[in-house]
Nucleic acid binder design. Structure first.
Length: 714
RNA sequence: GGCGAAUUAGCUCAGUGGUUAGAGCAGCGGAAUCAUAAUCCGUUGGUCCGGGGUUCAAAUCCCUGAUUCGCCA
């Protein structure tokens, strides 16, 4: 029977760029979702931006825009990043929308009026008298009471490691205004978590009738048990104005704390899906009785840092508000890069955007994560040397190579038509075909992607060894061996197809290309791998499916993410839309002072019609490679990615830009200019740049973030 | 400080009481030349963090120490 799943990834905060650490979770969830879909299950995968809180409010203020403008921009960036890594949400919402607000208010009213779990009492907090703002701990700094270190945060000292309350700080100051905060009391609203223990303890600690657990990971259950043992305290769910969020009903000037509405954003986002024509029924997934009858599941993928919220507050608020609590929470570990915490100064705080902008294949990362992920909460390490070796060896050397070394024979010798491959013809040194497939499926289902990848690569190894043993290149030269050659290559392609199906959840784009090559739309289903394509099936010409990772490009990625700037003052704004540091800091030509322009401004050329202008096909292109040209005074050789193809262009900008500074940036090119033979090769287009005729610098056109190779400029 | 997790080959990791601890990559030696240098065969390499204990049997269970990383609402 098909499962009916509502699956979520945790909501990223609308205050910064998506980086490789975030992507562990979205890629993990997306792989699991794609796998479940291939197996024929009904899956709704939703997420949203987490948009509320003091930090968003202050950030917008600094940028001189409204919080609504800030979160709209960041959401747009986040959605681009996720799409770039093939994370396929069915809906990507925002916690700041009517759908989420409606569920927040409904849950709150039921907790207050029906469950009677809301209470109020005054709380004394630091208050910034200049900004008229209650200050969260992270916006207060001062001198450590233990060791005397200056400029320490309100909760812990980074120098001596001791922890304390913000009120213990010596000479505290507000990082927002610099003012000395004062103590002020205010009424706060609380959710009485302590009264939920009778529900929460068995819910989180006991195995269910069907043998499953809310928390399948024993280490997660242990962690939660620790918190029970420490005692559950009431949870402060209110914040005072000014605050960016939802106002609490019947409590003017009081707002819901961001962590109350963040998980409710899952349901708000899901509501959008339900409101579409033919969408799922909201109550089937949220009402306890309806959900039970419909057999639906609610599954959350999260980082281990937010287990507390998802395993205690969230089930409690849902349950006591008359909603169905989640069926599963899966927590994963953090990402380290080269064995250490991600670091801006080391360049290992790598953003999703920089990965995509530098033209690195997102599926390289998806595969590497899959190979490292298991069902536990352990951290995983992205070792960049290992990454290059692993992706090149497994994906290019093993997997893609099987198709690459057998397709040509089938296409050239047998007109692309496959020979009969009996389903029973499966390498002896592997487990039986369907058994192996089920084993891999169990690993995927249990989120043991690393085990799945190991099993899959063992198949690739076996087939490569078989190709060597059969030696089709020998058969091809031997007269009378055509039948054996045909059968052997068809069998190798069957092995490749098996692998492509098994890897589809991890490598959806590559699998789609493999499906196009094999001319086989059925590969979107897991069962497609159970048996070979029928004899007589015609495949298409093989085109290379994946290129190798060049270690130099990984080095360039790290360079692009390295923060070379002086440590910024806390007040400094780092807009996420800032172009790549490599572009703005490297060898930028001296800014000419207007009065210094060495020559007169040229007169405007004769008027042309819009039709004349339309003849020029201007395209956004990404500089994939840039090389100095030996023997040329002015030229730089550029390899431009214009989306559909690559162009070689010689640009006369050597005096103004170093090749290193150009790689990865976007430029505007004339795409339909007649190719021109030059001494060093053919130039297939022209890159637009501004200059005065008499000299004084050449300035390439820059593009705002979001522009992608192949877009037409008009 | 309290609690928890981790530590296995040069690297990344499997391996939760049962032969002589495994894989991939890297290294070394050979083969092959179909494949966008991609492959195959063979091979080197380990005090399973240190110490103690339980057991017929320990990488695996217990105690203890070291180091690293988390969590402490």
């Amino acid at each position: 029977m098909p499962r009916r799943l509502l699956v979520t990834s945790a909501l990223p905060y609308a205050n910064g760029a998506i980086h490789l650490g975030h992507l562990v979770e979205y890629i993990q969830t997306d792989i699991w979702v794609r796998f479940q879909r291939m197996r024929g299950h009904e899956v709704h995968y939703v997420c949203a931006d987490d948009t509320h809180g003091t930090a968003i409010m202050l950030r917008a203020e600094k940028e001189g825009i409204t919080p609504e403008q800030l979160i709209a921009r960041v959401r747009d960036e986040h959605m681009h990043d996720f799409a770039g890594f093939h994370v396929g949400f069915d809906h990507y919402g925002s916690t700041h929308d009517a759908q989420t607000r409606a569920v927040v208010e409904d849950i709150y009213r039921k907790l207050r009026d029906d469950a009677k779990l809301i209470t109020t009492r005054p709380v004394e907090q630091f208050f910034d008298p200049v900004k008229s703002l209650f200050l969260p701990d992270r916006f207060i700094k001062g001198t450590c009471p233990k060791c005397g270190a200056k400029n320490q945060y309100g909760d812990a000292c980074e120098v001596c490691g001791s922890t304390y309350n913000p009120t213990d700080l010596i000479d505290p100051y507000s990082t927002v205004s610099g003012a000395t905060p004062v103590r002020r009391s205010s009424e706060h609203w609380f959710f009485q978590l302590g009264r939920c223990e009778a529900f929460l303890r068995p819910f989180t600690q006991d195995v269910r009738a069907d043998g499953t657990w809310f928390l399948e990971q024993p280490e997660a259950r242990n962690k939660i048990r620790e918190w029970f043992d420490a005692g559950l305290a009431d949870w402060d769910i209110s914040r005072d104005a000014p605050y960016f969020g939802f106002e609490i009903p019947d409590a003017p000037g009081k707002y819901f704390y961001v962590w109350l509405d963040a998980p409710i954003g899952y349901l708000g986002s899901f509501r959008h899906l339900c409101d579409r024509d033919g969408g799922p029924d909201f109550a089937d997934f949220t009402d306890p009785q309806r959900a039970q009858a419909a057999g639906t599941e609610l599954v959350h993928f999260i980082g281990k840092d937010i287990l507390y919220f998802h395993a205690l507050f969230w089930p409690a608020t849902l349950h006591f508000a008359g909603y169905r609590p989640p069926t599963h929470v899966y927590a994963h570990g953090f990402l380290t890069v080269n064995g250490e915490k991600m670091s801006k100064s080391r360049g290992t705080f790598i953003t999703a955007r920089s990965w995509l902008d530098l033209g690195l294949d997102p599926e390289w990362l998806r595969y590497y994560y899959a190979a490292k992920l298991n069902a536990s909460m352990e951290d995983i390490d992205l070792n960049l040397d290992d990454f290059v070796a692993r992706v090149n060896s497994d994906l290019v050397g093993k997997f893609v190579n099987i198709a690459s070394r057998s397709a040509k024979f089938v296409v050239e010798r047998f007109d692309g038509v496959l020979a009969d491959v009996p389903a029973s013809q499966w390498p002896d040194d592997l487990p039986p075909r369907t058994e192996l497939l089920e084993q891999i499926a169990r690993h995927y289902d249990a989120r043991d992607f690393g085990k799945a990848m190991r099993d899959i690569m063992a198949v690739a190894d076996t087939f490569n060894a078989q190709v060597d043993r059969v030696a089709p290149w020998v058969l091809a030269k031997a007269p009378g061996e055509a039948v054996r050659l045909h059968q052997a290559c068809s069998q190798f392609l069957d092995g490749f197809r098996f692998l492509a199906v098994a890897l589809s959840p991890v490598l959806p784009a590559l699998a789609a290309r493999a499906g196009a090559f094999l001319n086989d739309p059925s590969m979107q289903r897991w069962e497609a791998a159970e048996r070979p394509l029928p004899a007589g099936h015609r495949i298409n010409t093989y085109e290379h499916l994946m290129t190798r990772v060049d270690p130099k490009r990984i080095a360039a990625l790290v360079d692009a993410n390295r923060d070379n700037l002086q440590p910024a003052a806390p007040a400094a704004v780092a807009a996420p839309s800032t172009p790549e540091p490599a572009v703005v800091t490297d060898t930028a030509p001296a800014t000419p002072v207007p009065g210094d322009a060495p020559s007169a401004v040229a007169p405007v050329a004769p008027t042309i019609s819009i039709d004349d202008f339309a003849k020029i096909d201007l395209r956004v292109a990404r500089v994939a490679e840039a090389h100095a040209v030996d023997g040329a005074d002015k030229l730089v050789k550029l390899i431009l990615d214009v989306g559909s193809e690559q162009r070689q262009v010689f640009a006369g900008i050597k005096a103004h830009y170093t090749p290193e500074a150009l790689v990865g940036r976007h430029v505007v090119m004339v795409a339909n200019l007649a190719p021109r033979k030059m001494r060093f090769g053919e130039s297939q287009g022209m890159v637009l740049a501004a200059s005065f005729d008499g000299g004084g610098g050449v300035f390439l056109l820059d593009l705002d973030p979001g522009a992608a190779p192949g877009m037409r400029v008009k």
